[in-house]
Design a protein around this nucleic acid. Structure first.
Length: 419
RNA sequence: GAGCCCGUAGCUCAGGUGGUUAGAGCGCCAGGUUGUGGCCCUGGAGGCCGUGGGUUCAAGUCCCAUCGGGCUCCCCA
């Protein structure tokens, strides 16, 4: 294949007509589920201020340190959003959404950008949907968030997933636990992986999440954070579990689950699929009670999650689930001669006014070629128009499924195609 | 940031030890039916064999470089 002059950027893909139907089906499931839960959609810009993302996710997080698309124009620092929680929180603060009253239940769907090396289930432009529930401290909000997440995944038909659940503690519990962690690991610091050594001072909890072989024995030594939660946070976590039990949602308590964004407090969770191979995280989220205030808003407890749409579609495909259908026209108008094209031009408009999907040939090709195309696009009917039809005022209506044909008037065509 | 695999028609792929005009299936276009699809038959279009350099009388095939793609680790959705 000769070299192409223009191509997509590394890790960015075109969704071709064969693939867009399943995307629309997935989007529809998300919108429908949101309606059932009464979440409202929010759409924020793809670009944000760099500082928002850095402050929001954490300057030391992997996302910020190595996966960001950012550039400057004049004095402005632009960043392609790598996730949508910080942008939604920004919008919540900017537009004083707390003043709308009650708990804000927002959801979003859209592209995110991370400058990573692409591989299966991982692209530089990828899509997430997620929700953010702002203004509630209640464990019920956590449970609703998780229910929504699982509900969408189930509605797609992906069922064999694992929900990993943890509490990463409130600030007080966490501070205490961090000390314990550092005490435990300090004697072995030199034996930890380079990455973990860096994390030791700034964010020791991330060490628990390390997959480095050499870290494992020391991670084993560490106590569970769940044993260091204060009474209030422990009770909150118990209630979250209770609400999940009540709706029959199974979970696995994983005390070492620590998420990549620094803003999480208390409840943290992840949904994984065995059908995905190495990039097995379908969705993840948790509570972030301090973020709104940290970004300059009113103190507002919040919880949310984000799910990877490519990964969900991948899991669905792996399971042989067919999502969405290729759109087909109801009618294909076959024409012969300029007068017929004239007539078709009018008929196309009339039929569409009556909500009938209809197409025709744009190349003045042979009847045979047009019939072939009508067949390929799976039209239900073909209307054949030539000189004889125009003279008689009767048109050939062919049922493409059973090959039956009849000569009928325009009025009769409308009647048959619209009922 | 590190490692592994792969680049031949639109797609999926053949092209032993280098040897004349580079092939198949599917798809596309046309004809067989001068106004009728699916099946069948016939024909056609479509390839600087990713790119550049080297070895050789001769390179899709061997060597080097480079670009592109896929996958894995780390991390994440």
């Amino acid at each position: 294949m000769a070299e192409l002059k223009y191509r997509t950027h590394h890790g960015m893909v075109d969704l071709l007509p064969e693939e867009t139907p399943k995307w629309r089906a997935l989007e529809e499931i998300i919108h429908n589920t949101a309606r059932l839960y009464h979440f409202e959609e929010i759409r924020t810009p793809i670009m944000e201020q760099t500082e928002l993302i850095v402050r929001g996710i954490g300057a030391l997080s992997d996302i910020v340190t190595k996966e960001i698309f950012a550039f400057e124009k004049g004095d402005d620092h632009y960043i392609l959003r790598p996730e949508c929680t910080a942008p939604v929180v920004r919008s919540f603060i900017e537009h004083h959404l707390d003043q709308r009253g009650g708990t804000q239940k927002l959801y979003y769907i859209g592209p995110m950008f991370r400058a990573e090396r692409p591989q299966k289930g991982r692209q530089r432009q990828f899509h997430q949907f997620g929700l953010e529930l702002l203004g509630s401290d209640s464990p019920l909000a956590d449970a609703e968030t998780i229910r929504f997440m699982i509900d969408v995944v189930n509605r797609i038909g992906v069922r064999n997933t694992t929900l990993k659940l943890n509490s990463v503690g409130d600030p007080e519990s966490r501070a205490r636990y961090k000390e314990i962690l550092q005490e435990t690991l300090k004697p072995h610091l030199s034996k930890l992986s380079e990455l973990s050594q860096v994390r030791f001072e700034k964010n020791p909890m991330r060490i628990l999440d390390s997959k480095e072989e050499e870290d494992q024995p020391f991670i084993e030594m560490c106590p569970s954070i769940l044993d260091y939660l204060n009474d209030e946070t422990a009770a909150h976590f118990e209630q979250v579990k209770g609400y999940l039990d009540a709706s029959g949602i199974a979970y696995e308590i994983t005390p070492r689950l620590v998420r990549g964004m620094d803003y999480y407090t208390r409840t943290a969770f992840e949904l994984t699929s065995p059908d995905l191979g190495s990039q097995d995280a379908l969705a993840g989220g948790g509570r972030y009670d301090l973020l709104v205030e940290e970004l300059g808003g009113p103190a507002t407890p919040a919880v949310g999650f984000a799910a990877g749409m490519e990964r969900l579609l991948l899991a669905a495909e792996e399971l042989g689930i067919n999502l969405g259908e290729t759109p087909t026209p109801h009618v294909y108008i076959v024409t012969r001669g300029e007068a017929a094209v004239q007539w078709a031009s009018k008929a196309l408009s009339e039929l569409r006014k009556k909500n009938v999907s209809v197409t025709t040939d744009y190349q003045a090709r042979s009847i045979k070629a047009q019939m072939k195309e009508a067949n390929r696009v799976q039209a239900t009917y073909a209307i054949i128009v030539g000189d004889s039809e125009l003279e008689e005022g009767l048109f050939t209506l062919r049922n493409m499924h059973d090959s039956s044909e009849s000569k009928v008037s325009l009025e009769e065509i409308f009647k048959r195609l619209t009922n």
